[in-house]
Design a protein around this nucleic acid. Structure first.
Lengths: 223, 223
DNA sequence: TTATTTATAACGGTTTTCCGTGAGTGAAAA
DNA sequence: TTTTCACTCACGGAAAACCGTTATAAATAA
């Protein structure tokens, strides 16, 4: 490796400082990689990239304020060029496909090994895509089950809609184990309205019942 | 530091290999600490300590197979002596109090900084207790709200009961968004039985409805 | 041996959720 | 400016969840 070769600049975003510090420690021994910034939530990421540059962003999905999906979307909408490697605790095939569709270059499950983050940075920097082992398995598995994927595909790539602010309000209260009545008092709206929001969320997130909503909420850091 | 000073031996357990590798990288620069083992789930931890020793165990709460709480309880029941520092994404005051009651020596939120893990290991090795900043705040806050803590205390320290194997079966299916009817077919038991399990879980976990159960399940890695 | 725990099951009644469907308003985007 | 989106509200019926209570058998712990 030549002495004056350009180093790959990396920004790491994760709501767990401990993980960031860990990754920094892992990557610090790689001589062709420099960490030029870190963020603890989505807002910080967006703000940082407003006035800074990095070749690669390691982006956790589950973050407060603005989650990884929202950050990705905002980058895509603004035509930003840096590569993004998504990091997630949950290796859900729906999620993987969604982030790829929005424009991520790689997907790492947190259960992958430390080396694979080094590999992924190098590969993605070269313009390739990168998936950790468990992710590859999940993707292959989901493609072989054509039936269960039919609905997703048929919806032209919008199977994973995001919630409106108001829906998020309702979902938060649902997760506080309130019923529709309590929620309606709390938000000063009619019970019918609450139930409409509830229905709409169940439809757009393609879940079966409140349990699906609650799990979605936890996994997307809404609670 | 003397050349022949005993190093503190540490075992790290977390279901995210990435975090383990990160912690290993962070701790490897500490000359008085050696990592003598790692585990990706609760079972591995228990098995490892059956035939090995470490001064300190860094233990994640959310792990598959056997969660951190279960591991702690099994250690306590068998009279093991190593110190345990609990690691968790969720800095819930109930959880903190419970693990302390079972015998943990420290509690780190994953959002704490990498240095604090070094500090915690050193402190706990000296016989002290250690809490990361956010945890201290949570504890103080919960002690000042005496009212909300009355029920917990009044129950003689068993506010956080564990589920029976069968209840766990039911909960898993609940989280797959099945209704009681579907669950009963799936487990070949009566709908009434399913609903009994459901009720019992709601009671013993002190939640209000399925949403509470689902959130409990996700946070305790049952799904 | 006795007490407790676990898993099973029943039942009637109440509350809540879920489903379909339709509709009005205001704001923002095309 | 027309259209789309977010938010609001309504109603009726079906399905499911929740509550209280009781009970039996087997296994296990005290």
């Amino acid at each position: 490796m030549g002495k004056f070769m350009k180093k790959i600049t990396v920004h790491i975003a994760d709501d767990h400082q401990l993980l960031i510090d860990g990754l920094v420690a892992v990557l610090s021994s790689e001589e062709n990689i420099t960490i030029v910034g870190t963020s603890l939530n989505g807002e910080e990421v967006v703000n940082w990239f407003d006035s800074n540059l990095a070749d690669i962003l390691i982006l956790d999905i589950n973050m407060p304020k603005l989650d990884g999906i929202a950050v990705l979307k905002s980058f895509r909408d603004r035509g930003f060029q840096q590569k993004v490697i998504v990091l997630s605790s949950y290796d859900d095939s729906k999620l993987i496909k969604e982030v790829l569709k929005i424009g991520a270059s790689g997907f790492l499950a947190k259960k992958c090994a430390g080396e694979s983050i080094v590999d992924s940075i190098n590969q993605v920097f070269l313009g390739k895509q990168y998936f950790s082992e468990s992710i590859k398995d999940k993707l292959l598995l989901s493609f072989s089950k054509k039936t269960s994927n039919f609905e997703e595909v048929s919806q032209d790539g919008f199977f994973l809609n995001t919630l409106t602010p108001r829906e998020t309000d309702v979902l938060k209260l649902i997760c506080k184990q309130m019923n529709s009545n309590e929620i309606s008092s709390n938000l000063h709206i009619s019970v019918n309205t609450v139930e409409t929001h509830r229905k709409n969320m169940i439809n757009k997130l393609q879940v079966k019942n409140v349990v699906g909503l609650a799990i979605y909420a936890v996994k997307h850091n809404i609670v």
